[in-house]
């Protein structure tokens, strides 16, 4: 992979960090999402009409993990200028122009952006923050996003996580990392009847089978991504 990416490498001498575009410049290299094998396209064609739950994989988004201290003004203002939104506080998220930023730890945020835009965003962030103390890691290959929508979405997710996801406890925009089945997920409420899960690549198959099983009693359909 390193051979195909060297053309886009840029070395930031001030921080001595090699920035690398993880997406190969060679277009013949095929990208496969963690749920590629599940063939969601075929499943989507078989969907029921009156489904209480609609599942969709937001495949191949670019994921960046952003770390820094909220007490560091250079970090917070840098993120704000590059992303156009304020760093969300505990258990909150923000959305702006297709980019989502989620709080996942007191000094850690997960940013998702359209596929292929991650490297550009990473460079913008590095430029905006200058030489202050921070870290950005591209984790796109390690996880994927699934949206769960519909009238029965909340009822179904209650079977999946011990966290209280009722709207009075988890309003729109709140994000928690909690158990999902025997695995874990970053769960975000995107609407009154909408949720979004960030799951690990190695657990994607398990989570997908779990979701299908849990949704069965309500009837579900799959939307092609």
């Amino acid at each position: 992979m390193s051979n195909t990416t060297t053309q886009t490498d840029a070395t930031d001498t001030s921080q001595n960090i090699v920035q690398m575009n993880q997406i190969p410049a060679d277009a013949s290299v095929r990208a496969e999402s963690p749920l590629y094998h599940a063939d969601l396209k075929t499943v989507a064609e078989q969907g029921t009409q009156d489904a209480g739950i609609v599942l969709q994989e937001l495949a191949l988004l670019d994921h960046l993990v952003l770390r820094g201290s909220v007490d560091n003004a250079a970090f917070t203002t840098g993120v704000e200028s590059a992303l156009g939104m304020v760093l969300p506080a505990n258990l909150q998220s923000a959305e702006h122009e297709g980019r989502v930023i989620r709080w996942i730890s007191p000094d850690e945020w997960l940013v998702t952006t359209a596929g292929g835009m991650g490297f550009e965003l990473e460079q913008q962030l590095r430029e905006a923050m200058g030489e202050t103390h921070f870290a950005i890691v591209n984790v796109s290959g390690g996880q994927t996003v699934i949206t769960v929508e519909g009238a029965d979405a909340e009822e179904m997710l209650k079977k999946c996580t011990p966290y209280d996801i009722h709207i009075s406890h988890m309003p729109v925009g709140k994000v928690v990392t909690s158990l999902f089945g025997k695995s874990q997920a970053v769960i975000r409420r995107t609407g009154e009847q909408g949720f979004e899960l960030v799951i690990r690549r190695s657990f994607a198959d398990y989570c997908w089978l779990w979701l299908q099983d849990a949704s069965g009693e309500f009837g579900f359909s799959v939307k092609e991504s």
Binding site: N90, L91, S105, P106, P162, Y163, V176, S178, L179
Partner: peptide, 11 residues
């Protein structure tokens, strides 16, 4: 004390 809310022991 970091998430500032109660969570299940399993976590």
């Amino acid at each position: 004390p970091y998430c500032e809310e109660h969570r299940e022991e399993e976590e």
